[in-house]
């Protein structure tokens, strides 16, 4: 059985977990087995509806001690659940919590693990998973040699497919150890889609010359319904908040569309965005290295091009 861990940070199930279920369901089909999901704690969502992503059963460990993500505690519960349920493959989203718990589960189950997978494994003779390495600059095919296998799947690399189905929701009794972490504050950015979950991203660099010029970028983001990001020099100069920094040392994202405005495309920046499906680069310097990594390029002054693009998008939306 393929068991998919559902990350329910703040009682909310994010797109990364929907995608993990879809991936697990496709893998289960390939292996001729069932896809079931595991959720820890209570959640304000209709769990049966998660069947639409392909899980036939949702196992829920309800326990008042499971109020907040704690890697050590969750790893213990997930490992016990996997043993009780007889899981042969475990799938996690490669998001913050998935990365923090899956390798610990691998130790507890004596399982081989591949983190950051970007496709379904090849399972004809052995079990070989392809993952991104060198910060998205290459792929590695890795064979898992153990009976139990664990995969974390890169966000927005497999996609979400929906069908018309409901899952059976069952209670699972597992001993839950106490957490030794005390959460003292949670600070969430209100009203924005987290960058790692965004499908459309508009990003600005030093070419915009100063924080006072961000209006044209924000207008474009608003017209598209996109999230905003920035390059490292921009966040280092405090033109934009640090949580918007994408790149090698910032967030690594993989949206469907990444529009880079006034970003030259240093290799460290590309490492954070090179898994984007489509990249548009707007830069007045035709020699900017980012053009080599782009699908579409506009050589021109951002202060003229960006408002034109915003107008064109609004026009196309109005006309549709």
């Amino acid at each position: 059985m393929v068991l998919i861990y559902i990350d329910n940070a703040d009682q909310e199930i994010k797109n990364a977990s929907h995608e993990a279920i879809c991936y697990g369901a496709a893998l289960a089909k390939q292996l001729g087995t069932s896809a079931e999901a595991l959720i820890l704690g209570n959640v304000n969502e209709d769990l049966a509806s998660l069947g639409k992503y392909g899980a036939s059963k949702i196992h829920q460990v309800k326990n008042s001690a499971l109020t907040h993500f704690d890697s050590k505690q969750f790893a213990t519960v997930i490992s016990e659940a996997a043993k009780v349920l007889g899981a042969s493959v475990l799938v996690f989203a490669h998001n913050v919590n998935g990365k923090a718990v899956a390798p610990a589960v691998a130790v507890k189950l004596g399982a081989g693990i591949v983190t950051g997978a970007c496709a379904l494994p090849k399972t004809d003779n052995d079990f070989v998973v392809t993952k991104t390495v060198f910060s998205g600059k290459a792929f590695a095919s890795i064979q898992i040699n153990t009976a139990i296998k664990i995969i974390t799947i890169n966000q927005n690399s497999f996609g979400v497919l929906m069908q018309d189905a409901n899952a059976l929701v069952e209670n699972l009794e597992i001993n839950v150890p106490v957490s030794n972490l005390k959460i003292t504050s949670v600070d969430k950015i209100k009203g924005e889609i987290p960058l790692t979950e965004a499908t459309l991203v508009v990003s600005g660099g030093r070419g915009l010359k100063g924080p006072e010029n961000w209006g044209i970028l924000l207008d474009l983001a608003k017209a598209l319904g996109a999230s905003t990001a920035c390059s490292r020099p921009v966040s280092d100069s405090d033109w934009r908040p640090h949580h918007e920094h994408v790149g090698q040392t910032g967030l690594q994202i993989a949206p469907n569309l990444y529009i880079a405005i006034g970003i030259s495309g240093a290799i460290q920046h590309l490492a954070g965005v090179n898994r984007s499906k489509t990249i548009v680069v707007i830069n007045k310097d035709p020699e900017a290295p980012f053009f080599k990594a782009a699908d579409y390029g506009v050589v021109g002054d951002a202060f003229e091009v960006v408002p034109e693009l915003t107008a064109a998008i609004l026009k196309s939306k109005g006309g549709a």
Partner: peptide
Amino acid sequence: QNTTIKSFELPPAKTGVKLVDPTNMD
């Protein structure tokens, strides 16, 4: 070893950027 690297692969080269006239955002 729980895992073994079988092979590496580079992503397919970008087919080349398609340049769009800056006065034609439509």
